[in-house]
Structure formats: C-alpha cells, structure tokens
Design a binder for these strands. Sequence first.
RNA 1: ACGGGAAUGGUGCAACGGUAGCAUACGGGUCUCCAAAACCUUUGAUCUUGGUUCGAAUCCUAGUUCCCGUG
Length: 299
Amino acid sequence: MKKSCILITGPTAIGKTALALQVAQYFSTEIISCDSRQCFKELNIGVAKPTDAELELVYHHFINSHSIQQPVSAAVFEQYALEKINTIFAAYDIAVMVGGTGLYVKAFCEGMDEVPSIDPAIRQSIITNYNNNGIEWLKEQVKNQDEAYYAIGEILNPQRLMRALEVVQSTGKSLLEFHTNQKKQRDFNIIKIGLELPRPQLIDRINKRVDAMMEEGLLKEVSSLLPFKTLNALQTVGYQEIFAHLQGDITLAEAIEQIKINTRQYAKRQMTWFKKDEAVQWCSPNFEDVIAIVKKQLK
RNA sequence: ACGGGAAUGGUGCAACGGUAGCAUACGGGUCUCCAAAACCUUUGAUCUUGGUUCGAAUCCUAGUUCCCGUG
C-alpha cells in the first residue's frame, strides 16, 4: 500500500493544531509540524505552540527541535521533514503534517532546487552593505552582476535582491540557472486539506487568541527574549510589537492592537497563498468534515 | 451657561483663495533557502446651510457636533 501524508493547513488561529491532534490520534500516528516558528524551543506562548499535554498525546516533529540561534530555512525544513516522514512511514501507513508556512509546505511537497550553500561571510557582507548603502546600491549590484535576474526579479524587494546577489557572488551563476521549474516527485500521497472560516469569525478567533496569550504571560516571555530581538527567529508577530513597547516606542495597549492587526494581515497572506494551490481541498475546521475528506481520498 | 478652539477617506494628519495629498487600516495580489519575513496594488474624504468670488477645504453668516478654560 502506498503511504499517505495528510496535510492540514490554513490561516493562523483557525484551529489547525487541535484538529491535527484528533486526526493523528484517529490514525494512531505522528505529526510533523510545518510552522517556521514553532520549531524554536525558546518561543512558546507567542507562537501558539501545542501544550505539553498535547505534545504528550501525539509525537510531534519539528516542534522544539531547534534553537533561535540556529539558521532554519525552507531548505532545512524540506530535508528535515522528508527524513522524519520516512521514519514515520517505517511504522505507520499514514502521517499527519500540520502548519501554515506556505513556503515550507511547498518545499515539502514539491522540493526546492538545489543551490550550493552560501559562504556566511558573503551573506554578511551583502547585508552590511545594504544596511549602509540602501536599496539603490543593491539594485546596482544585481543589475551589474546578474542582469537576467534583474530583468525579471522583484527589484524593489531587498530580500529577493540580496538572495540573488549572494548566489551569483558565491557560485558565479545566476539564481535563475538553478531553477529547473520541475516539481520533485514524492513516493507517497499527499492529501492537502485547507481549513477556512468566514473572515469575521476568523478575526474574532485571532483577537481572542491574542488576549489569551497576554493572559498567559506573553509580556514576560518576550521580555526574556529582548537580548535576541535581532535574530531572524524573533522577526515574528507578537514579539516585534512587544519589543517596541519594551523600548518605550508604543504603549502596551498599542502593542496588543498591532499584534492583532499584524496577525490578521498574516492570516490574509496565508489564504492568498493557499487559495492558489488547486490541490487543496477546503472545509470548515471540524473533525467530521476533515475525516470525511481523508476517507474519500484513501479509497 | 459664558469665553475660546476644532470639524477633510475607517483612523491620524496635510493643502498661499487656484489639480484635495501623505501615512495607516480595510480590500486585492507576488513570492524556490530570513516566509509569522520581504514586497506590489485598487477603492475611498472636505459636517450642514446660505453667501462673497471667475474660482472656497480655505473667507463671511447661521446651525450641528466635539474639545479646552471659567462657572
């Protein structure tokens, strides 16, 4: 029998964690998280990680698996998740993946084209130069060193430009040359299920969850992470806003309101990403609906 | 109640009597190694009334609402 991965995705705060837990218990299997923030053991309340009780019920991979000091990326996730799913398939026919990080879902399902790893010195040099000289400098560099990318890339987006630049400086080749535009084939089925709710309901859930995070002690958690505020892992909704408050830039009430706004915007971007994926089957976030889709697909 | 001030997009602000603009939110979107990131983008407004003027957000009249001070 061919193995199957049940992928549960959707916007933040819609109830993915709880549903994945039920599905995993139903099939007596394990979960791989597909969330670019819950993998960090130092982040807890602000990233809505499963509770300790939930983690005991079902084995979760890519939860608390990394430190905020480690570089985690889509490529790292792809390799990690493929390794773990093979471990799961050695014991079970079904695995559950859950998370809302669109790029990680894509990396897992379709693969990332292999680009040689970048010398950290080159990366750092580019970042420093960009910080000192601005986007015009960056555009100029890419224009001169990778004309092909400059012609079609997002030339107003510093992150994309820096990526293109670090690749051409490390390898002498354009980032575009590494792109095969071919999806990798996986030797297992992937059942993609998207959870959705009418927007007012989702917004209500987001607002309530942010308030709950504050009651659980988000302020304290973020305070303890202040020394790490510049790490990539901390460029995260719920943390940046409270850092701003701790530095006296905004009041706590303003920080909380900003967290709600930024979380809504994040949820919207997630929906935009996943709606484009025609393989996703949409349903409301309840167990019966999800399991019905799964059973239909497993036949 | 009296005196003073203010009314411009959902919110916060700008505009010498001469094309109502900026920020942000909302809506839509992009995205193959930072993705809870980064970036692109549509719509939307001069409180009401009458007047002055070739022309009013801007000046004048009356009204309404709000703010500050005094009581």
